[in-house]
Every structure is written in structure tokens, then in C-alpha cells.
Write a protein that binds this DNA or RNA. Sequence first.
DNA 1: GCCAACGTTGGC
DNA 2: GCCAACGTTGGC
Length: 654
Amino acid sequence: MNMEPVGTPVPVAEPQGKDVGSSPERIMSEAGNTTDKKPHSSDPLKETPVQDKEEDKPAGLEPPVDWFEPLEEDDNDEVESLAGESEMSVSGAGSEKNHLKVHKFQQPRRKRSSPEEGWDVWPILGDGWKRKEVIRRSGSSIGQKDVYYISPKGDRVRSRVELTSVLEGVDLSTFEYKSGRFIPGGVPPTRVRIRAKRKIPESSSSESSFVERGEGTDTPDSLHRLTPNLGPKTVPSQPTVWLAQSTVVIPTQQYEYPPAEKEIKLPLPSSSRALPLPSINGDISSEENTLVCSRCGISFTGTWYDKQRKRPFCPTCWAASKTKVHPMVRFRKSPGSGGFVPQQPYNEIPDTFEDCLSFQSEVTDSQHLSLKSSDTENFSINVDIDDDDDMSTDDDDDMNWNPEMTSADSLSYELNVRNHQSSMQSNHLDFELNGLPDRVPHTSSDNNNSELDQLSRLDAEKLHADRHGPKCGEEDDDEDDDYYEEEEEEEEDELPIITQIFSMADSQVSSGVDSENQLMKLLQALRSTVMPILWYAILVNGPQLQIIQCSKQSNLTDAIVLIDPGFCYQVTVQKQPLLPTHPLYDKYPAHLTSATEVVNLLLGLEEYVVCQGLPPKDPLLRTGPIILERASTCDFLVKKKVSICSNCRALQGL
DNA sequence: GCCAACGTTGGC
DNA sequence: GCCAACGTTGGC
């Protein structure tokens, strides 16, 4: 069998084909341990339907599919929980809500996968060997990959040292533990750890004391595990680099998954629990968790640490610092601050509009905006003054994160930020509207498939670009000058209190991380700004800023202002883009480069209502969901006093 | 009590 | 600063 993973990004002279297949015999022969070529009879995994999945997977990159299945279930549960929570709260059933919240946060902090899950047969070490990769899904070391092996005898190996101990006599100098392969040229010498015993923590009454655990004794693990006492191996040279950090991993098949090694997740680590938690009123304790990015120097709020060094990075610089970055990070702003704390990844964005809003409700900011109801009929948003749960334990959030992204789980938005930054059309978070309230008029185009919808948007974007000049990302320096002028011409008389004015005036509009950084700054500015009621800004993949009207009671339910890295914007209503000819676009700058401009636009939007479209012609149809029709040229947004756009009205008269 | 998962240390 | 090694926690 060819063990060479397809698509291995780096040429590695690893065991190939039959050589690989013969490796076990060779190894076991050298080890003098060939008597038991079968999995040990007591092997707890013998019933496991193991499969050799390696031929399609780059070593060290293969998605640990099976291991995350439990989390997927959790994710589903989570969504259901949220939905249930919302439904409960619609009737003001706070108790139920609390109950559900309790339920939610009583989810285990860790999820143990089944011991049988995820093991691959690993004949490269000999018959009966199995290997498993586990990517840490939470904690400060999230994204770190642990590799375990199980010997035919059932010995669990979790380090090279232990493996060496088990395979005593086997030359593992060329064996790369993490990838599980033999590397011609060898691998670096094993590090020798002479680890001092941890001192007894003082006054540790709440936890089992060191004495109780038995100082100087081995843990249960080490009793049954291997206690290697091997010195360092000397190997001739550096190993072949398996995964160039800058290499863009070519996804195999349709499977895309977050790069395991550099996934980021920024919970409040256990050691960081002294970090302030937001208070109910939005104040923050004196030790506000405002950090200075160690790279770019900007201030931000959150816990964006290098996973082991705890070095603070702002979200953007984190992304920039890692070639492979977890593409699914959302941000939650700490109350009273202008920064963000990391949130669950985008792969948790529900795929219904309500759920999306529910998702958004977790992106709680100083407004303590909490969406309590996703009931499809009576969707409402209330100010949640008891939001501590939501803001507190990231451990809970941890459980919501499923780093695996199967194709089936891939929602309709693009997940990989970095790979699609230049693709404007992919920036849209395509809300699924399947669960839209019945009372909300749908257009006939709602029935269109996403491709058509996408085309529709593209057309609109093109028209928009025609109208407003170069498409975003195509701006030249003159465009930047325009931004500046627009900023200066702003009127603030009618605005709510603006606590921070953000301008891209002196910022270059460019692609890539810089663009995302600029969007981030705008997002930050928006979150420091008193927004028109129940408008809420989030940063989504693309990157793209989305300012969403969250309230179903608003005239602008399901309206979204989309701002792309070039600060071009587009207004969508119920997923439908306003035609570029919409008069709204004439009133406001073609680019929204400041929080003030955004707020201005939102205030202007508030003067509109959603076109009511055409009522059903056949009253009998009213027994079912009321589906209103609209003219294909519906304006979607009409002045309040109009209620129906001229195009729909004309259609009605036909 | 086992052990998967995560935290922490310290060699490099 | 990285990350292998292994200590520790907590779910089961």
C-alpha cells in the first residue's frame, strides 16, 4: 500500500509504496518483537473498525474526522438549545430561559471521545500498531496536535520517548513521531526532559493536594503508561520539513478543514481567570483586559494570546503571524471597551437566519444586546441584563467549537477567510432564509438556488460598481483621497453620540490582512459608537463587515449593510440586494469609511420600510404561510408612507 | 479508577 | 520562541 499521502505539500522522501509496507516487518524484526503480529488479544481496540485513511491525507494534516463527531452533536445540541431558549423567552419565560442557559453551560468542559474513535492502523510501526491524532479543541493550547500510538499490546504511547521505550531496540532515529513516518535523513534528537517535581501548592485546600496525589509517585497514567528512561537519540541531521508554514495546503477532495497546527482559540485560560469579566452594566473592572498587540502595537481587548507563550496579539496580527490560521474566529467585544475577545468560529454560524441572529446574539457587546427569541413568528430582541453567563466562561464556548469542518457542515458562507479575501462575491454570508418568518414577504427569487442568487448579487454589485465607481479592492490612491474628503464632509448634527470617530483617511486600502485590519478598525469604531437601535456590526468571513438590523420589530427586519474591505457597501433586505439604482445609494457616500458614515446610513435606512409586496391573490392560500410576491424590480425599501414600491404596485395593477 | 484532553515545563 | 515531554484535570 502506498502510504504516501496525496497532496503532501512538501516533498518528502518518505517511505514509499512497498517500502512502507515492508517497514513493519523490518522494524519488528529489528525489535525482535515480531512474534505477535496481530493486535493483541486484549487490545481494546480490536473491535474498532479501523481504516487506513492515510493514503489520501498528508501526514499531520489529515482531519481527525471521527474524533470530532461528538462535538458535532454538541453543536447541534447547542443550536437546539439556543433555539429553544429563544422560543421560551418570547413569552417572557425567563425561568425557562435560565434553565436552558443552565443546561447550556452545564455542558462538559471537555468532551471525551470514545476510546475507540479515530484510530488508524499504522503498519509502518508494525502490525497491530495504531495511531491517532487529536487536535486540542479548547484551552490555551488549542490547535495543538497530540499524537498517540497504541502498540499491539495495548500500550498507549503519547510521546516519542514512550514510543522508543515500547519499540525498544528499534531505531527510531528517522521516525518522525508526529507524522508517524520515517524521514530519510532523520529527525532532530529527542529532547531530554529532566523535569523537577512540582512543588506542593500552598494552601491548596480546594483541590486534591499534592500529598493526596502522592508526591513522588507516578500518576495513574504513568503507572500504566510508559516511563521511558532513554537518553536522547543522536540523529544525523535535521528532518525534512514536512509542512512548510507558508505552504497553502491543497485541500484534498472536497474536504476543507482548519489547519490543525495553527488553529487559534482564545479562551480565558485557566491561568487567566483573573482577567476581568464584564459586568452587567458594561463597566469593566479596573484591570480592564486591554492588551497591546505585541506586533502592531494597537490596543485591543481580549485574550488573543500566542497559544503557549501567552503573547498578546490583536486578532489581525494573530492571523498575520500564522500562515495557517483558524479561519473561523468571531469576535465578541468586551463591554466598556473597544476591543474584542475571540468568539466561536464561524462554522458555528447557524445556517438559518434566525439562528444566525441567535448567533449574533452571542456576540454581545456593550449594548448587552441579547436575542432571546428566534421564534419564527415573534422574533424579538430584548436587552439582557443577566448576561453574565454569556460573557463568562469561554470554557463553555469551547465546547461549542468543532474545529472539524466537513463538507456537510460547511455552511453557505465561505469559511476560509484568507483564501477568499479577494473574492468579493464570496464574502457574503449567505443566510439561509428557510426559517424566515412567514409574515415576512418573500420574493419569488427566494426560491432561486443559491447560484442564481449569487449571480443576482453579482449583477447588483456590478451595477453598484458602475454607479459608484471602481469595485472595492480596485481602488487607486485617488479613492483613498475620496475617503478623506468624505470624512471631512460629514455631518454629525443628527447623529447619536459618537464616542469614537474612525476614519480610513490615512489608511491605505489594500488587500489581504491589511484590509481585514482596516475592517477590524472600523468594526471597533462601530462598536465604540452608539448605533441606531438594534443595529449590530459583526465581522464575517471575507473579510466583510455586516451591520445587521436584529430586531424583527424593526421596519428593517433582516436588513444588512455589507461593507467589504474596500469599504464599498451594499444593503440587502431579506438577502436581496437593493438595486444599485435605489435612491438610497444616492444619498450616501459610495464608501463607508467611518463609523459616522455608517451610522448616517443606518439612520437613513430607518426612514425606510420593507416593501410589502403583493398580497396573495387567492385568499384560500392564506391557510398556509403567507407568501407575498414582489416585482422582480422591487425596491425592497420604500419610504414609510409608501409601504409598497412603485414596481410592485404596478405589478399589482396588472 | 481509567484515560482523553489539556496545561505546563524546560531543552533546544 | 517553539514544541516535545509529561504532569494534571476531569469526564466517564
